[in-house]
């Protein structure tokens, strides 16, 4: 009886996925449309005038970065909203009074948010494949990076959702931190194209490692070694898990 509350995990996961279905437009369709617009603008319109990057057409080169951009922002916004909303309307009382462990809460909320991100990433890839010549050299690595990134950033979103005490804070982090980091993280260029000083600065940007590893799984091109990308992803995941564990141990912003 005390092993694990599978029914609760299932209930929360389903509830969250139902929320995704209800907000299909906002959660799946609009990121797909905006990503498709990027392809049209950067790939087809401008991309034609930009030389190939190490043998990959510019339109194809930016695909992994664009997928990452969506993955990061959507994971964060979806996971943060998922836990922030019950806090905001008060329905969190039920979660707090239920026989569920913190592990089960995180597993189900973050699992649902990450599932959605993975699905979204795959849909964007499929969209991209229609517009640019796409090739995936290392599919398993691609899936690995896709899943790890989705999970990590859903965890970060979960943390933000607990920390936020207003909608502004909920939107501030993706807007003020994640989007700039992603744009400057080599989504649209290889950081090898940068002057040495800015290249060094870029290495402090965590997103660089995510984009680089992800792009490597497509074209075998990487700014930093794949091993380093994977290791850094693991570090982010571990740090996020540690913060979540701390939040639950202290009841931070969840219980009075």
């Amino acid at each position: 009886m005390s092993a694990i509350n599978v029914y609760a995990i299932r209930a929360i996961y389903r509830f969250e996925m139902a929320r995704t279905r209800r907000t299909l437009m906002q959660s799946i369709v609009s990121p797909v449309i905006s990503t498709a617009l990027y392809f049209v603008v950067f790939g087809a319109a401008i991309g034609g005038r930009i030389p190939e990057v190490e043998g990959v057409s510019y339109g194809a080169f930016i695909v992994p970065g664009l997928v990452m951009l969506s993955l990061l922002t959507q994971s964060i916004s979806n996971a943060s909203f998922g836990i922030y909303f019950p806090k905001f309307v008060g329905t969190i009382y039920e979660l707090l009074s239920a026989p569920v462990s913190y592990f089960e809460i995180v597993l189900s909320y973050v699992g649902a948010a990450a599932t959605k991100s993975v699905v979204l990433g795959l849909i964007i890839l499929a969209t991209a494949a229609l517009l640019v010549p796409l090739k995936i050299e290392h599919p398993l690595w691609m899936i690995l990076f896709l899943v790890l990134t989705s999970v990590t950033f859903s965890l970060i979103g979960f943390i933000i959702g607990i920390w936020a005490d207003g909608f502004e804070k909920l939107q501030a982090i993706p807007l003020l931190i994640i989007t700039p980091l992603t744009f400057l993280g080599g989504s649209f260029y290889s950081i090898d194209m940068l002057p040495p000083f800015w290249r060094t600065v870029s290495l402090f940007n965590p997103v660089v490692y995510l984009v680089s590893g992800f792009r490597w799984s497509f074209y075998g091109l990487a700014d930093v070694s794949v091993g380093l990308s994977l290791a850094m992803t693991g570090v982010f995941l571990t740090v996020s898990l540690a913060v979540v564990a701390w939040i639950f141990r202290t009841g931070y912003r969840l219980k009075n």
């Binding site: 509350n5 029914y7 609760a8 389903r14 139902a18 008060g90 329905t91 009382y93 239920a98 026989p99």
Partner: peptide, 30 residues
């Protein structure tokens, strides 16, 4: 597991159906 709570404040989901929200609670409590 033993406890059911009806809170003082009217805090409910808005967009779910009655059936789903009650079924959800049952699952949540294992």
């Amino acid at each position: 597991y033993m406890i059911g709570l009806v809170p003082q404040e009217l805090t409910t989901d808005a967009f779910e159906t009655v059936w789903n929200t009650v079924s959800f609670s049952r699952g949540l409590f294992g």
